[in-house]
Design a protein around this nucleic acid. Structure first.
Lengths: 155, 155
DNA sequence: GGCTATTAAATGCATATGCATTTAATATAT
DNA sequence: ATATATTAAATGCATATGCATTTAATAGCC
């Protein structure tokens, strides 16, 4: 039997996996949903990731890069880079901690607050639409369940 | 009042958003969960994204790039690039369609099937652990709900 | 004080992802 | 048949994300 032809093998694992893998379900839903929020926020020059990042920094008090990364269950290096566009756009301010020059204090600038507030209306539209589509009870349950996934602790 | 000081403004929108945004809940959970699958599959040289991609191609019959992208609710260009590492590793084969030279047929190579089968055991371990942690009923419900998010049709 | 361990953030490297555009090739209208 | 429209995949550009490592600076130990 030569290679790469018929391949009489409807692999059970492969068949099942496409339907049952939790990572796939999550990633796929994230792609679909992120695209919708991104489309709505595009006219404000923000992605949904940047929008939620602004929200997090706003509700924290002069957090460090690591602190925000922790709050969002994100890697420090990813956070470090994710801040770059917001910093360049002047929406977030990074100041060196005078007491510990390794650390930087993050804060949302006035421009950042303005941009956030302007985008919030469009965020709400998408959020409401999704909630209506899914049903409020199921929507809230889903969101709650998703937030139960905790970052695995490094032993 | 000078800029960037106290900022007496516990913005209601920002406060609420960090907790209720569906995109954030999804993205955060995806980060946490993907890291776990990735860690388990790393010794097979696969990411969870590549693993599920292999699963999808396997269960399709000589699909085109676009067809696989559609099946995974992914952009064609992202799929095009996502195939690269698998192709370089010889796990996926791209052949030109002789009847339409724009199109390429995708298929999983023997090496690809072997790698997939080898990784499947470790995939199962993570999947089972998560299911135990969340409870099988809630796990299955979550997965099912996530798969209800459909790609928004371009009108 | 001075050497070492630790820690915060940044970087190198790789994959993931989408939108707009380009390239190549097929399909269509005239 | 020929010019045009359409279509499949690839590319340019930008953000997103993680791991390992580097860089810079503080903390600890002797």
């Amino acid at each position: 039997m030569t290679k790469h032809e018929k391949s009489p093998r409807p692999d059970a694992a492969a068949l099942a996996l496409t339907g049952i893998c939790m990572a796939h379900a999550l990633r796929r839903a994230t792609r679909v949903v992120s695209r919708e929020y991104d489309a709505a926020l595009a006219r404000h020059g923000l992605t949904i990731g940047q929008f939620t990042l602004l929200a997090h920094i706003q509700r924290m008090t002069n957090p460090s890069v690591q602190a925000v990364a922790d709050a969002m269950f994100m890697d420090q290096s990813a956070m470090s880079r994710g801040l770059r566009p917001l910093e360049k756009a002047g929406l977030v301010i990074l100041r060196m901690d005078p007491a510990d020059k390794r650390r930087r204090f993050l804060s949302v600038s006035d421009a950042g607050r303005i941009a956030f507030d302007a985008a919030a209306g469009d965020w709400q539209k998408v959020q409401s639409r999704l909630r209506d589509n899914l049903g409020s009870a199921e929507f809230d349950m889903l969101r709650k369940t998703l937030l139960t996934f905790e970052r695995a602790e490094a032993e």
